[in-house]
């Protein structure tokens, strides 16, 4: 009796496992084609007789938000969104977006496929001092692989560029995804043909094959794929010479028009008791020169003194 119940419980768990949908989460930044490849995947799954649910959030990603699309398919799908930790395949079209969604990946069996394309969002540049480090992820593909069972970092954007159209990068990744599913290649190609613009069908089919081949090579450990380990330079701010900002203000020329005070991005200027501009918060000033440029009375001159110069000047003063 007891055995029978256990068996029933095991059977119930088994059938639940079998009936679990396949969860694919596709993430990226606006304009990369996240929605397009998720639609192609959903269309393909539907054509294979599965029940499909897809839901997405798009827009504003260039301003630091995310574009993501949940695609779930299987014999039976109830919710259109994938719970945290339930993603079977996480496809990321941008490196940091991929890392952001990693907690959604199934810890034991999930596959992570990520483009190494890096699009630095404005949020990573909140500190506007030149030389300030960008707050973009510094993890290397090797570090990520150590935490994920099966992870691929593909330089899909470069591969697509070599084909002559960098916008086909998403289809390169779709090709990579295709290796993780059992659909026939011909059907995949039909799905790609269905969704890409008519003029780009040829290049996109090539991109698809390239992505598929890349994963196959990587699985077999072919040196070509391993050598394709992308060059992964940490992004840096353009200038990293430290300097101090000094504002030279000609009080007699200032007419208290307030343009510099109101238009300073750091809000570090103010008018003093005589209504002449002064630098109220020197440590906030980044030396962007907006006040100098927008002062109609030429009363402000921004000097960026390098630290070496200042040390030399102090040494000179001491002597």
């Amino acid at each position: 009796m007891r055995d029978a119940t256990d068996d029933a419980a095991v059977r119930a768990v088994d059938s639940a496992t079998v009936r679990q949908p396949t969860n694919v989460l596709i993430v990226g930044v606006g304009g990369q084609g996240v929605i397009m490849i998720s639609k192609a995947l959903a269309w393909l799954a539907q054509s294979q007789g599965f029940e499909v649910k897809q839901s997405e959030v798009h827009g504003m990603a260039k301003r630091g938000g995310a574009v993501f699309s949940h695609v779930r398919f299987g014999p039976e799908v109830w919710s259109p969104t994938i719970p945290k930790g339930e993603v079977d395949i996480l496809v990321a079209l941008e490196w940091a977006e991929g890392l952001r969604w990693l907690p959604y990946l199934k810890p034991d069996t999930g596959i992570f496929i990520c483009d190494t394309k890096r699009i630095v969002p404005p949020f990573a540049c909140l500190n506007r001092h030149p030389g300030a480090p960008l707050r973009y992820s510094r993890e290397t593909p090797a570090e990520v692989r150590a935490h994920v069972l099966e992870a691929y970092a593909i330089d899909a954007t470069r591969m697509a560029e070599e084909l002559g159209n960098d916008r086909a990068a998403n289809v390169v990744l779709l090709g990579a995804v295709s290796t993780a599913m059992d659909f026939p290649v011909a059907d995949w190609e039909r799905a790609v043909t269905e969704f890409v613009p008519k003029k780009t069908i040829a290049v996109n089919l090539k991109a698809f094959g390239l992505g598929r081949g890349w994963i196959d090579d990587a699985r077999r450990g072919t040196p070509a794929a391993l050598e394709a380990e992308p060059v992964f330079a940490t992004p840096r701010a353009p200038a990293d010479t430290p300097y101090n900002v000094r504002l030279e203000i000609t009080p007699g020329w200032c007419k208290s028009c307030d343009i510099c005070v109101k238009l300073c991005p750091e809000r570090c200027l103010q008018l003093n008791s005589e209504r002449i501009v002064e630098l109220a918060i020197p440590e906030a000033c980044t030396g962007c020169r907006l006040c100098e440029w927008l002062c109609p009375d030429f009363a402000i001159r921004v000097h960026l003194d390098s630290v070496q110069d200042m040390v030399a000047a102090q040494a000179g003063a001491r002597q």
Partner: peptide, 17 residues
């Protein structure tokens, strides 16, 4: 000749720069 005769906040100074 400075400061110039333009009113406070006149955009002409910006154009001159």
């Amino acid at each position: 000749m400075m400061p110039h005769f333009l009113c406070p906040g006149c955009g002409h100074g910006i154009a001159l720069r």
